[in-house]
Write a protein that binds this DNA or RNA. Structure first.
Lengths: 110, 110
DNA sequence: TTCTCAAATCAAATATTTTTGATATGAGGT
DNA sequence: ACCTCATATCAAAAATATTTGATTTGAGAA
């Protein structure tokens, strides 16, 4: 039944690394070229590429090639998707099962 | 100025691991004892304790000791905090800087 | 075509996270 | 006091994630 934890985890991978949070903060100011990000973060080209792939795969960041360069920006669509998903993952189900413990098959601890 | 990426990353660590997403899904049905989680997830006691610590540190899960047992549940307060933080991290700043590239000090690529 | 340069990819090294098994802690019961 | 059991903690092993440097790819310019 209930779906791919892997897919959901991938969305939030974007936000659980400090470097990626710094990248997102830079992108909040507007579209940025990779070279600017490399400069600002003092990170290697290869490492930036690695992080941008994770951010792209999460759907939070989108990219636009222009000539030799690639410009990155925050995806509104991806962000809203993540926001809705987070709300869903933390919202209690309307039907609640009673709090049981493995030893309390017929007697509750209270 | 802008705060601890580490603290923010910690919040989303709750959601970027498959086991923890499965734990949260179980908790959406209501408060659960650790022993139930161990049974349901087919996970070691030590591993569950490790994951519950990460979930607690993120603020998403709260715990309640009762006798020998500890009952875990989703924290509404923590969940709302995470939702607001996610929105903040993905919302563009009102003042946008123009898209520049490291080579375009005075000439833009278009 | 060739040259240049930005970005992606690869493989190896490094760092971090997660699992496992053992032990310690702490509360409840006897 | 003890014993029992649930959880936390520790250290080592295993699994992943990240960084680094080299190479490849692909687009633009000559």
């Amino acid at each position: 039944m209930s779906v791919s934890y892997e897919v959901h985890a991938k969305v939030f991978k974007a936000f659980c690394d400090e470097k990626r949070l710094r990248i997102l903060e830079l992108l909040r100011d507007g579209e940025k070229c990779a070279c600017i990000l490399i400069e600002s973060l003092e990170i290697g080209q290869s490492a930036l590429s690695y992080h941008m792939k994770i951010l792209s795969d999460s759907g939070i960041v989108e990219s636009r090639p222009e000539g030799k360069w690639i410009y990155y920006s925050i995806s509104e669509r991806g962000s809203i998707f993540a926001q809705n998903l987070l709300k869903e993952l933390t919202t209690p189900n309307p039907v609640q099962s009673p709090p049981t413990c493995c030893l309390d098959i017929d007697s509750h601890p209270e």
